[in-house]
Measured scan of single mutants.
Amino acid sequence: EKTLKIVADSEEEAEALAKELAEKYNLEVTIERNPEEEGKYVITIKIKP
């Protein structure tokens, strides 16, 4: 299993990107607040072998 993390500037941007990735590529995608940067969100994508 591989994990890729993407940082987005807004929750709306994160949700839109996560939804597109999940639907288009059938990936497991989660969104959470970035504890290191206020106002940023981390999109985590898990790629199963």
Rank of each mutant, 00 (worst) to 15 (best):
E23M: 09
V7Q: 12
A16I: 09
K48E: 08
E32G: 05
P49S: 14
K48F: 13
E15V: 15
V42K: 02
I31K: 01
L4K: 05
E20L: 12
A22F: 11
E28D: 11
E1M: 06
R33S: 08
L4G: 04
T30D: 03
V42P: 01
L17P: 00
I6S: 01
K40M: 04
R33F: 08
L17W: 12
L27G: 15
I45G: 04
E36T: 15
V42H: 04
K40T: 09
E1C: 13
K2V: 15
E13H: 08
L27I: 11
T44L: 07
E13A: 10
Y41I: 06
G39S: 05
G39T: 03
A8G: 02
R33Q: 14
E23W: 06
K5R: 13
D9C: 10
S10T: 11
Y25C: 13
A8F: 15
A22L: 10
Y41V: 06
K5W: 13
V29H: 01
I31E: 00
G39A: 02
G39E: 05
I6Y: 14
A8L: 15
E15H: 13
T30Y: 09
I43E: 00
V7F: 15
L27T: 15
I47L: 15
E1L: 05
V7C: 15
E37Y: 14
A18R: 09
I31V: 11
G39C: 08
Y25E: 03
T30Q: 08
A18V: 09
K2D: 10
L27F: 12
E36L: 13
L21S: 01
V29M: 03
G39I: 02
K40C: 05
Y41K: 02
G39R: 03
T3L: 13
E11Q: 13
P49F: 11
K46Q: 12
T30I: 09
E1R: 05
A14C: 03
I31Y: 07
E36R: 11
E12L: 07
G39W: 05
K48C: 11
A18K: 05
Y25R: 02
P49I: 14
A16Q: 09
I43D: 00
L4P: 03
K19L: 06
K40P: 02
E11S: 08
V7I: 14
S10K: 02
E28M: 13
L21E: 00
P35W: 10
V29G: 02
V7M: 13
Y41A: 02
Y41R: 02
T30A: 05
A18L: 07
N34C: 15
P35C: 07
R33L: 10
E1D: 13
D9N: 13
T30L: 07
I47G: 05
L4E: 04
L27N: 06
A16V: 10
E15L: 15
I47S: 10
V29P: 03
L27A: 15
E23I: 07
I31S: 01
Y41C: 03
G39M: 03
L17E: 01
E36H: 12
G39D: 06
T3G: 06
